[in-house]
Every structure is written in structure tokens, then in C-alpha cells.
Design a protein around this nucleic acid. Structure first.
Lengths: 382, 382
DNA sequence: CTGAAAGCGCTTACAG
DNA sequence: CTGAAAGCGCTTACAG
């Protein structure tokens, strides 16, 4: 199974390596006979060009890198899927890099890990520091961003600010005035900008509706089910209860639904909930949410990248925006007037139409008093 | 921003390129002074070796490929995360390939896409045909498999057969005899073996409990929430209703829960449900399920790969197995005796008191040793 | 301990 | 339309 080289092919076809090279890439004038002879020889020998040699000779790697702070979370996995599709169809290789914490991040950007290794890189959701931007520029390859923007780099973003405003405005329009926010941690070390924009959208919507921004209506946690659950528990332990909750991601909204269910609050009768993403499980929960096409964003940015990498000329940086739209399902409704502002679930009047109770909520677990602790009974067999 | 080469470093340090090369990789005897001078020069110039030149000279690519039929599904994303971690820590690059359908698959294996491109490849969940195995062997690099086994390739698998048997035995122990299966499509074109093993485990458990395997108790669909939903709808439209359902994945189980909820069947009072995976949302739904550590499997196989790729000598193929354990939560309970076997949901008597189901406690199955089962108690810290 | 030289397998002006 | 030759940037026996 010795590796067959271009020389072997040349010899078999009775031509020079140069001719084989040109023929295989369809360059220059070639006599039809030679071409087919070469093609045959190459196939017969099972020849494929050595990427290493090709790269060394041409300086092009035929490879792009995708750098992400998470791999398994819904948004990131979907985005990766979209990027992969376009990149593969273009015949490029995709190198995956996970930059999970600030330490990895630092060592990642300081060492020129990508140097001479890729023709382009797409960064997902990473808010770059100035030194990081400088390091990236010194790579001398086009940089593409999703969910973040940097001068001189192409990007595709949704309008987080406006989308969040819309989501909260929906709650305002329904008549809510005690609208809580479940957001990402504003002080997390990776400095993601998405949560910042979504929070700003929330606050702006309140203000423009003549409502006041109240810190006790805001809680935060990681962008996960657990994060949404514990943030909601926090909200529910404060002095005034919200009639609606805007969660910055669907997974957080799922956690909120669970927490509400645990304390016996009904959705949407007692509390309305809006999420963000349109995660596949969102329709399961009948969750009202802001929908975005994540694989589409991946494809979009990858197409930019591909056309610039394959093209003869580096294309100028562009800023693309992806659409979002509010999907109204069954977790939002007009608030029910409550006689007792501090009332517990039991004290509330029954809602006229309980059939709007979202499926899956409230059926599988006995409601218990919320406490910070997770209740989890597990038993293992064997 | 001209690329700095080893010559530049050599010149600056006043030595030959050979010496720089040796010094940078810590080979041969080196005088301390030279080493530090070289190191300084390299840092000053921001030098990093050209991967292409390195690969061409050494024949090693420092790269591994991960080939997966899905990227975004939970199992695959988690596995990828585990592999990535180990691979990155070893300083290797990870090339991601998505082989989504039989067509991609064919063109993928026929063209030597991986040829000369990687030092090793991990295949996830792909049942290979003989020609595919041959193509892989001709790559002349070690091949690693997760969730599948091939003679001569290293692999890590869970025991799908035994795990499924255990899950169904749990239902049998609770007193169920009408146990349905929600499985993957046995005729899907990719020929995944996991669903086959899980189905066999289901059937074997029935048989060994003296129950008969009834086709009308089996339904299939894709390994998704939707798939589980529609498979359950199929089950519910047949002549006899099951009192328990074993779903081959948690996501399918979620779909089952939804379908049951839609028709007013209560879980676990009317129907018990067991899933497979211990997906993060499983605890959300209080789903009884077979837990597996997916990122751990990714790390395990990656460690094998790394040690063989980095090591001087190709290690022999090994077959590793990963543990599973049944996690009993609240979606399984003893069946309630029904007067009317063909009764509809509406026709059923209301369950006397759901509180007769002590949360978690009363639902434990008597752990019964399955044949050939590994005994292992796992406890979760944190 | 260190250099000069060959070689890894391609591509691409440069000639013809 | 096709070849010979140089060069891409490394590594590694081979000498010294």
C-alpha cells in the first residue's frame, strides 16, 4: 500500500509530472487523449494528491477553522451543522476548535495555533478583545463572525436588541406590567455580547412602554435549562411576583416553566413566558418565542467564506443580518387581575380556560415548594 | 507580515536551520546557550512551523478526523465534545466530516477523502459495509469506532443489548406485560446497528419473562422527539393499548410523553415510559432511563487514538466497553389493573390516588442480575 | 554538539 | 500542447 505519487501516474501515462498536475486540475491546453490517459492512470493507481505537498507548493490550505465557545449547546451545534454543509460542498476541510474558557481562549489566541493552517476562520459568538483582534488580523486570512461584529471582519447577526424588544412588547401589548427578565450572567468572564443586547432590548421595551426597570425583576444564570430554573426560583422568592417572564433563550424558558410548575403557578394563566430561539422543544412546550434560523446563519457565513477563499480575490468584509420573528404559542396570555399581589398560587382565582395548559407541563411531577435544591430521586439498578 | 521561516530564525540566532529544527523539537544534544538563543529568536519573530512543510517532511499530519452521521443530535454533539477535548489537549487538529446520507457516504468512502490527510479517524455509530471497511483499511491509519465494532478496529461501545434488556426487565418487574417498543426504523438506509441491538434486548427481555413478542406493540420512527411522538400515536391507534413503553432514546421518549399527554393518558398511572440516554431533559421530565456517559465515551476513544498516533508504535486494536445504568425516576410504576382492556382514555376510571405513588421510592425495581451483566454501582458526585 | 545536503510531493513560471 | 527545473519550508540521516 505504498503511497502513489504524481510520478507514478506520470510514468504510467507516459507523460511528465507537470502534465499530470495540469491535467488533473484542468489547467492549460490539454489534448483530449492525454487527459483521458492520465485520468485512467490516476484512477487505476488510486491516486490522490498529497494535501501537504499541495499546500506547501501553493500556500493554500483548503481548510477553514470554526472556533466556538460551546460545541454541544443547541445554537452552536446547529450553527456548526450549517457551516459544515457549505464547507464540505465546496470541498474544503473543516477544523473544529473549542475555546471553552478564558484560559483556553488566551492560549489559543496568543499562540498562533491557526497560523499557516487555514484559509479562513469563523468565530462564533465570541466578543473579541483588542489583542485578540490583532492576533486574528496577523493571521492574514479572512475572519468571519456569527453573533458578534468587529471592524473589518465579515459577520452575520440577528438583531438581538430589536428582537428582544419585540418579545417584551408582545407582553406589554397583552397588558403585562410586571415583566421579569431571565438573562445570561452579565459578569461572566467570556463577555458574550448577546445577553447584553437582549437585556437592553428588554429594558428599552419597558421604558418605551412607560414602565420602570426594576432590578428585582431581573435574574440571571447560564443559558441552560438549569440556569433558567434557578433564575426563576430566585425571581419567585422575591417580594413581588412577575406576571410574565422573558427568557433570553428557550432552554432557560424551559427551566422557567419547570420552576413555575413546581410551585403550582400555571402558564399562561398565572405567568406568561416568552423564550428566544425556537428550539425544537419549544413547540413541544407550546412556548411563545423569538424564532431564528440558526443553520441558515451558519450557511450564510460559510458561503461568504467559501466565495472569498475559493475566489481569486479577497472579498471586502460585509455585515449580513438574519431575520427573526415572534412565534406566538400558548405560553403567553393577558394577565389575570389578582386581588392579592403577594398571593400564592392557591389564593388565585381559577382561570376560565384551563385547557390551554401546555402539554407536558404539570403532568409528570407532583408540585412541590420551590427551594434552591434540585429534587431528584434516583435509584440505580445493578 | 511576511511568513517567517525557519531560515529567518536560524539567521537571527546565528545557527543552521537544522539546529533550529532540532532545538525547537527538543531533539539531540543541544548546548543550553544555543537553545535559549534560538527560542528567543523564534519568539521575537513570532515563528511557528509550517504544518504543510512539516507534514511533507515527516509524513505525519498531526490531524485526526471525526466522521459522524449527525452533528446536531444530542448523542453526536456530546460525543464530539468529548473527543475534541482530548484531541486538543494532545495538540492535534480535529477535522470534522458529516456523512449524512448514503449518497454522501458513498462518495465519501469511495474517493479517498481522508487519504494522506489524517493520522487516525474515528467513526461514530456507522455500520460499515465490506467495501467501506476495505477503503478504510487502505488508508493505512488506525480507525476507531464508537457504537459499532469492526474486526481490527478499536472501538468503544455500551452494551446496548443488555442495557435494553435491563430497561424492559424493570418494566416486567413492576408487573407490566403489555410493553411496547418505540424503535428506530429497522429499514433505514444507513443501517445503524444500535436500534437493532436495542430491539433485540427488548424482545429477549420479553421472551425470558415468558411474554410473547407482539408486532402490534412495536412502532418505529427517527430518533427524535417527533419520531417518538408519531410512533406513539401509531401505538395508540391499534387494538390493544400498552401499559408501558420502552423508547430507544430519550428524545423519542419525550415525544411519547407528549403523545400520551395529548390523548389524556397519565404517566405513570396509565402508561409507564422508559427512555435511553439520560439526556439533560430526562431529569426535567422525571424520565426513567438508561444512563450513559457520552462525552466519556468520546474521551475514551480519543485517548486510544492519541496514544496510538503520538506513540512510536501503532497500538493493537482494543475493544472497550462503557457502562450504563438504569436511572429510575417517576415515569415508571406498577400498572393499574384495568377492567376494560380496550377502553379509551375517557372510558378509564380515574386513578384513585396518585399519592399512592411515593415519589421515586415505591417504584424501585428489585435489581435483578441480568445475564452477563457487569455489576457496578455508580454514584454521582456533585 | 552542529552543518550541508537530500528529500518529502507537489505547482508553476519558463522554455520550447 | 508539454518538459525540465526551481522552489515551497521543513526534517533527518550523514558527516564532521
Amino acid at each position: 500500500m505504498a503511497k502513489t505519487t504524481i510520478k507514478d501516474v506520470a510514468q504510467l501515462a507516459g507523460v511528465s509530472p507537470s502534465t499530470v498536475s495540469r491535467s488533473l486540475r484542468g489547467i492549460g491546453g490539454l489534448s483530449a487523449g492525454t487527459v483521458s490517459r492520465i485520468k485512467e492512470a490516476a484512477e487505476h493507481l488510486g491516486y490522490s494528491v498529497s494535501p501537504a505537498a499541495y499546500r506547501l507548493a501553493t500556500g493554500r490550505t483548503g481548510t477553514i477553522a470554526v472556533v466556538m465557545p460551546y460545541i454541544t449547546r443547541w445554537f452552536f451545534a446547529e450553527l456548526l451543522g450549517g457551516v459544515e454543509k457549505v464547507v464540505r460542498e465546496a470541498g474544503l476541510d473543516l477544523l473544529l476548535y473549542h475555546v471553552g474558557d478564558t484560559e483556553m481562549r488566551q492560549q489559543y489566541f496568543s499562540s498562533g495555533l491557526l497560523r499557516k493552517r487555514v484559509d479562513g476562520v469563523v468565530l462564533v459568538t465570541l466578543a473579541l478583545t483588542d489583542p485578540e483582534v490583532a492576533a486574528l488580523r496577523s493571521l492574514d486570512v479572512p475572519v468571519y463572525m456569527v453573533g458578534a461584529e468587529v471592524e473589518g471582519f465579515s459577520s452575520v447577526c440577528i438583531d438581538d436588541l430589536d428582537s428582544s424588544r419585540t418579545a417584551v412588547q408582545h407582553l406589554v401589548n397583552l397588558g403585562h406590567s410586571d415583566i421579569a427578565l431571565i438573562s445570561g450572567d452579565p459578569n461572566e468572564p467570556m463577555h458574550f455580547t448577546v445577553p447584553l443586547h437582549r437585556r437592553r432590548g428588554y429594558r428599552e421595551a419597558l421604558v418605551s412602554a412607560g414602565l420602570t426597570v426594576r432590578p428585582e425583576l431581573e435574574a440571571h444564570g447560564p443559558f441552560t435549562v438549569e440556569g433558567g430554573y434557578s433564575a426563576t426560583v430566585k425571581l419567585l422568592s422575591r417580594r413581588s411576583l412577575p406576571t410574565a417572564i422573558f427568557a433570553e433563550s428557550d432552554e432557560m424558558a424551559f427551566g422557567a416553566l419547570k420552576a413555575l410548575d413546581r410551585v403550582g403557578l400555571r402558564v399562561p394563566e398565572d405567568v406568561s413566558v416568552v423564550g428566544f430561539d425556537d428550539h425544537p422543544m419549544a413547540s413541544y412546550f407550546e412556548l411563545t418565542t423569538v424564532a431564528q434560523d440558526v443553520p441558515g446563519q451558519g450557511r450564510l457565513i460559510a458561503e461568504q467564506l467559501v466565495s472569498s477563499v475559493m475566489g481569486p480575490e479577497g472579498a471586502p468584509a460585509v455585515r449580513l443580518s438574519a431575520q427573526t420573528h415572534l412565534v406566538v404559542r400558548q405560553t403567553t396570555a393577558a394577565p389575570v387581575r389578582r386581588p392579592d399581589k403577594h398571593g400564592t398560587a392557591e389564593g388565585r382565582p381559577a382561570h376560565p380556560s384551563p385547557s390551554t395548559l401546555p402539554p407536558g407541563v404539570g403532568t409528570h411531577s407532583a408540585p412541590r415548594p420551590a427551594s434552591g435544591a434540585r429534587q431528584r430521586k434516583e435509584s440505580r439498578s445493578k
